[in-house]
Simulated scan of single mutants.
Amino acid sequence: MNVNRRALNAYGQSDLEHQIDTASPHRLICLLYDGAIKAVAMAKVQMENHLVAAKGASISKAISIVEDGLRVALDKSVGGELADNLESLYDYISYRLLVANVNNDPEALDEVAKLLSELREAWESIGNAATQNNGASNESESPLELNREKKATLSYGRI
């Protein structure tokens, strides 16, 4: 049984590495959200099963993804007020994760999971809209104009 689990973990890791290697910058942000959401879900299960060390590790992973992934990817020079608002929201999410860990508060984890899911959905819809706009763009537009439009739409970060 342990051998099967290691094989599945190895497959999952190589699949994730492949996704990262081939992902667009937009897709990378989605993968970060997915990782944070998964870590929060794992932390809730671990909390319910009184697995203190594992819960702490999962919450730390979620905080790390938010702080070292999503926040670092923000580009305030391009994102402006939206980037500032996202940074404030990431501060709040990290704080709520810390509170959830210290107080064993599953409601805080639920709140964070909901926020991250809503952000991920919004980010995904932005990408879908940008893809549709680029596919239906006017052929008379120059590549420079198209690039400006794409950059304005997908101005999340530095990735």
Rank of each mutant, 00 (worst) to 15 (best):
residue 6 R to C: 00
residue 123 W to Y: 02
residue 108 A to P: 10
residue 81 E to F: 09
residue 73 A to T: 05
residue 154 L to S: 04
residue 101 N to E: 07
residue 104 N to W: 10
residue 54 A to W: 06
residue 114 K to S: 01
residue 101 N to K: 07
residue 132 Q to M: 04
residue 58 S to G: 00
residue 37 I to W: 11
residue 118 E to M: 02
residue 21 D to F: 07
residue 3 V to S: 15
residue 122 A to R: 08
residue 110 D to F: 10
residue 141 E to D: 10
residue 109 L to N: 10
residue 94 S to K: 04
residue 88 S to Q: 07
residue 102 V to L: 10
residue 129 A to T: 11
residue 27 R to Y: 09
residue 120 R to C: 01
residue 140 S to F: 15
residue 78 V to M: 15
residue 140 S to Q: 15
residue 97 L to Y: 15
residue 114 K to L: 02
residue 103 N to A: 07
residue 143 P to A: 05
residue 15 D to F: 02
residue 97 L to E: 10
residue 15 D to N: 08
residue 1 M to R: 09
residue 55 K to T: 04
residue 74 L to N: 08
residue 74 L to T: 09
residue 11 Y to V: 04
residue 99 V to S: 09
residue 99 V to C: 06
residue 54 A to L: 03
residue 63 I to T: 09
residue 90 Y to F: 13
residue 71 R to Q: 14
residue 70 L to H: 07
residue 27 R to G: 05
residue 158 R to N: 12
residue 102 V to W: 14
residue 72 V to T: 11
residue 47 M to K: 00
residue 91 D to T: 11
residue 76 K to W: 12
residue 79 G to C: 00
residue 54 A to I: 05
residue 74 L to V: 04
residue 15 D to R: 09
residue 120 R to M: 07
residue 85 N to D: 05
residue 3 V to Y: 15
residue 159 I to V: 06
residue 7 A to H: 13
residue 57 A to S: 08
residue 130 A to Y: 07
residue 77 S to F: 07
residue 126 I to D: 12
